[in-house]
Write a protein that binds this DNA or RNA. Structure first.
Lengths: 190, 190
DNA sequence: CTGAGAATTGGGCACTCGACCAAGACAGGT
DNA sequence: ACCTGTCTTGGTCGAGTGCCCAATTCTCAG
């Protein structure tokens, strides 16, 4: 699926797109700024891709898949409770305007109005959810599937709020998050 | 702060802006579509507002404040655990593309690149957090402040994922969310 | 070296954008 | 009736947009 050298420009365009989406926003990426950032002529965008929209979708989906895959391969080493702290640590080690973080939010929002992109992201989220569920399913955590759902949503929500709420502190928030993995308290039986 | 009748157009423009932000996205709102939606001439936008950006910021901030205030006034009636279910129910009763929901996400993202808007949203989030903290502080919930942080972030994350993950079900997710309010389990002391 | 196909360039087309402005409409007080 | 200041209109400006294409350069098999 790749002529080794000829597709170098294609790769550069996708990478430039990911950077520009994070820097200036999804809709602010134009064919000319994109080509300039990639160091090629403006006409090349529509030579390698059918449309700018298709380029942006492919750039976002491949970039997101990359981040997700790397996160997932790091997970199985640890048990869920330690792993949660590990995830939180990484989340807070990035700056609030971390390109990968912004790319996710930009893609989520763009997917609201693009059916193709929405399909791609839905598949990505399902894969993430499946692996998270398996990771959580150690017998000590109730309802791993929906726990994975909430974990994924909370992670994205925290990333959103991180750049808007200066009082958000990962160390202080970690104990609260860990409650999600706690067993349910004993039912009060009279 | 308002000449009673003359500012009707101003109000219409702000309302049209909120609708268009949700429908087409923050950056897709132009002076012409906005004026057309509000039923006025294109020139009026820059008569009542110094710039389109200022109009959008004011529209988003007032709209968000409205939603937050209404949510907060509903809260104190119930105790936190019942209230959480109530909140979840409302969250799921809206369609995935609920205008108010999309407006929040659009504003969050726009705030990434607009200092004024970011300040406004930060203030809004702090007010929300303060009230949530007071609401949670019933003596049975540990660390109400950071719990409020996580709750707010999780709510926004769930709203984001709701339109992208067809398997997300409020009823199944509710029990997991309620763990956030559970007391920490007894420390295992050897 | 030669020729063919792939890759690349820069400009052009029709369009939309935010901002601006001269001109007119409309009110209420005198 | 007239003036005054607020409000509204529709059009214009230069800049920027996605997409397209003739012309040029590059690459490599024969």
């Amino acid at each position: 699926m790749s002529t080794p050298k000829s597709h170098q420009v294609r790769h550069d365009l996708l990478e430039a797109a990911r950077a520009l989406i994070a820097e200036r926003g999804w809709t602010a990426v134009s064919t000319r700024t994109l080509a300039h950032r990639a160091g090629v002529g403006p006409g090349l965008v529509h030579y390698h891709f059918p449309s700018l929209r298709a380029l942006l979708n492919e750039a976002a989906l491949t970039g997101m898949a990359q981040v997700i895959d790397q996160t997932l391969t790091d997970l199985p080493r640890t048990d869920p409770r330690q792993g949660l702290d590990h995830l939180l640590g990484k989340l807070h080690s990035y700056p609030p305007d971390d390109p990968a973080t912004v790319l996710f939010t930009e893609a989520y929002l763009a997917a609201t109005r693009d059916a193709d992109l929405r399909r791609g992201i839905t598949d990505l989220l399902q894969r993430l959810r499946t692996h998270l569920t398996a990771w959580l399913d150690d017998g000590h955590i109730a309802d791993p599937e929906n726990t994975a759902h909430v974990l994924a949503a909370t992670a994205d929500g925290l990333m959103l709020h991180r750049s808007l709420d200066p009082h958000l502190n990962a160390d202080q928030v970690a104990p609260v998050l860990r409650r999600l993995l706690n067993p349910p308290p004993q039912e009060e039986q009279p």
